[in-house]
Design a protein around this nucleic acid. Structure first.
Lengths: 152, 152
DNA sequence: AACGATTAAATCGTGTACGACTAATTACCG
DNA sequence: CGGTAATTAGTCGTACACGATTTAATCGTT
């Protein structure tokens, strides 16, 4: 009443109507669901994402990891240093191009992969969704992300 | 072999296959899309979420805001103090119950709502999706979030 | 070979985000 | 009525996350 004259849309949209907010909330929910599982491995959620990339393909540069995660070196460098201090990986300048730092798993980091292997199944069951549903939803979200990135 | 009795799936799942990662990436993409729009108003993304809640309903407690955003007081208190320092809102102990702090918009904070009104439309166009598609996607993500919260 | 432009990481400052703990207030129960 | 439990914010320590800047190395052009 007070905030809409004639057929004008509401001046203030409800936060619950925002797609961005549902994603914000889902991100937190995922992070909280992973937390106890990852705590057993001594990893945080972003650290787990980095380790997953390295388990997939070892010996990547900081820049490669950053491109895949959409993270700046200002975020990755301290994160990688923590993982290095804990003996999960090593960081060394590339001999061919001294500007790039190559990140490699240690044997301890590689071994962690086995202990982490059960996690995806735990999360899957927490979502209560089928692999098929999950895949479709993922595709839609990836599409959305692409559009947002193009628009900026 | 070691980790499944029948025909074994890959030992390491690809990060791109993780729904959680698509959401992680979408959250960042939204945040980056909002950033330039919000910068004009002098707000960060989480601050904007709080302001939206207050534009929707003024005079809420820290606890109410935290429940809606799934944020702890340890996150909200500093955020609210910054908004208070910038003159967007006030924080005062409730007279009836001195444990609770009530958050109210200042007139400057209320006025900001008009300048923020155009933002949802900007974001909508950045997604390139119809309101209908957006709504359906939002519902699916909310469902997913509920399941994750129940599972923990 | 030389030097300006570009690139890759790292550093710094600000702002979330959370868990564990503390302080103050209120509610509850015998 | 009084003491204990529960509730509400706030503080502290750790860890992302980003923009702006810096440093070092390489590339491109002449």
């Amino acid at each position: 009443m007070a905030d809409s004259q004639h057929d004008a849309p509401a001046v203030t949209a409800r936060l619950d109507d925002f797609l961005c907010f549902s994603i914000y909330a889902a991100e937190h929910a995922f992070s909280r669901t992973y937390k106890p599982l990852l705590a057993e491995l001594g990893l945080t959620y972003p650290q787990y994402l980095v380790m997953t990339l390295l388990w997939e393909e070892d010996d990547q540069s900081v820049g490669q990891l950053g491109a895949k995660l959409s993270l700046e070196s200002s975020t990755l460098t301290p994160l990688l240093k923590r993982l290095e201090a804990e003996g999960r990986l090593t960081r060394h300048r590339d001999k061919q191009d001294e500007r790039v730092v190559r990140v490699k798993l240690t044997s301890a980091g590689d071994k962690l992969r086995e202990r982490a292997a059960k996690i995806p199944a735990c999360i899957l069951s927490a979502t209560g969704m089928s692999l098929d549903e999950l895949g479709k939803l993922r595709e839609q979200i990836i599409q959305l992300t692409k559009r947002l990135e193009e628009a900026s």
